[in-house]
Computed example of a mutant assay.
Amino acid sequence: MIIRHLNEIRSSEHNIRSDGWVSARMLLKDDGMGFSFHITTMFAGTELKMHYQNHLESVFVLKGTGTIENLETGEIHKLEPGVLYVLNEHDRHIVRPATDILTACVFNPPVTGREVHDETGAYPADPDMLRAPVPTD
């Protein structure tokens, strides 16, 4: 059983801050669960362009308001408490928080904990996921 407390994560190396957001990485790849779990705040007035090419993500809005734009379709959806958005097709998107937005996020495959977005808006691919399987006899 794994027990973690958000306040302890927020004061540790697993609390990652980048331009426009801060993410408490509660559960990571090394925990062996097959996914990672984060409590992330996206800051009001920012525009966060992201494209998770190497991960699938689901995001549940706990507090705050804003919008998410699907860059493939141009559709804009309202974000508010109780909304879940799922980037099930590696969707290119922009989140525009009107207020600080507090979310609970799940990533598959799990992140290692130190990732921040690269110039394309993605987290890097996990090198373990890129290795060819070893043949068995």
Rank of each mutant, 00 (worst) to 15 (best):
H90L: 09
E119L: 10
M50W: 10
I39G: 00
L71Q: 05
K63N: 15
D126Y: 03
E47N: 10
V61H: 04
P109S: 10
S36N: 08
I3W: 03
G64S: 08
I2A: 07
I2C: 04
I68H: 03
G32E: 08
V106S: 14
A104M: 06
V22H: 12
A132W: 06
R17N: 14
P110S: 07
F43H: 12
A122L: 00
T103M: 12
N7W: 09
I2T: 07
W21C: 00
T40K: 00
S58V: 13
R17E: 15
E47P: 10
V22I: 12
T41C: 04
G66P: 02
E89D: 15
E8N: 15
F35R: 00
S12V: 09
L56P: 07
L48S: 06
K78A: 13
G34H: 00
G113R: 02
E8R: 13
P97I: 03
E8P: 01
A132L: 10
A44W: 14
R4E: 08
T99S: 11
L56G: 14
D118Q: 10
R25K: 15
T136F: 02
H51L: 12
V106T: 15
H5G: 01
L79P: 13
S12Q: 13
L71Y: 05
H117P: 02
V116M: 12
V59G: 01
E119K: 13
S18M: 05
D30Y: 06
E69P: 07
N7D: 14
N15C: 04
V116F: 10
R4C: 04
V116R: 11
I16H: 07
H51K: 13
F35Q: 00
F43L: 11
S36K: 02
K63M: 14
M42C: 12
D91S: 12
Y123Q: 01
T46F: 14
L27G: 02
L28W: 11
T112W: 15
M33P: 00
H14W: 15
G66D: 01
P109D: 11
R92L: 11
L27W: 06
D91R: 12
N15F: 10
Y123C: 00
H93D: 05
L27S: 06
D100Q: 01
F107Q: 03
V134M: 05
G64R: 04
W21F: 12
M50H: 08
